[in-house]
Amino acid sequence: MALQSLDVKNQSARTSTPPTARRTPEVAKLVDVSRCIGCKACQSACMEWNDLRDVVGVQEGSYTSPPDLSDQSWTLMRFHEEERDGALQWLIFKDGCLHCEDPGCLRACPAPGAIVQYSNGIVDFHEEQCIGCGYCTAGCPFDVPRLSGRDSKVYKCTLCSDRVAVGLEPACIKSCPTGALHFGSKQDMLFEAEERLGDLRERGFTRAAVYDPRGVGGTHVIHLLPHGDRPEAYGLPARPKVGLVQRAWRSGLARGVGVATLAGVLVAGLLHYMRYGPLDVPPGDRPDGEVKP
């Protein structure tokens, strides 16, 4: 990797081991949902830094705008409305890539190097290697990557890998006015999250929890959820994981056995031919005479 601070520790469809000599601390973004006011500063900052402009849509009866993640919207404030005990609640959630430690997209991708995972934990798409098959969109447990209709490449949050590489924090972090967004080493962020979790619980959110799902090996975007017992209310899967079907589908082992079997068929053919020779018409039966068997 050209940028030394972005050593690649894993890449899609790889056949060799990436470099591991240097050690880099793992980074993480902490999203304290309890402090988010839904101002969308982060959303704007993301557009600014990454030069993204989504189409201007129409009001669809929700503050969520644009209506969905896209190749031009890598982070999106989702406004989940719910009525509980007669009161309206707004569960505001910053949607986007969670940068899994065990990324389903990377496992699914058949194009070498189209998806990389840096040693700091960031999962990044290299669009110039992407072939547009969309496997990653099937493999992501959080429904994050978006295939662009413009160029058939997939886009998502980079966790501002370009900024992080030179020691800056992601653009969204810089813009947050309430301190809901934090960035640092994963260890520090987990520590910070635990502290805030204590505060939240004292304030009566007894079910609050840190969302750092084990099923995907933990994530490099962790959430502090006031209603931690119901991640679905924020649009998050309760137990995200790379499922059995996908493991079987993109299993390196199964594919290795498959390729070996193909080679085996070839070898079996050669050996058979060497042992038995061609199945030719017996000499007595040649060429067109009416030889009785």
Binding site: R14, T15, P110, A111, P112, G258, V259
Partner: peptide
């Protein structure tokens, strides 16, 4: 080619 990176 898609089946195995070995054949990409």
């Amino acid at each position: 080619a898609l089946f195995s990176p070995f054949f990409f």
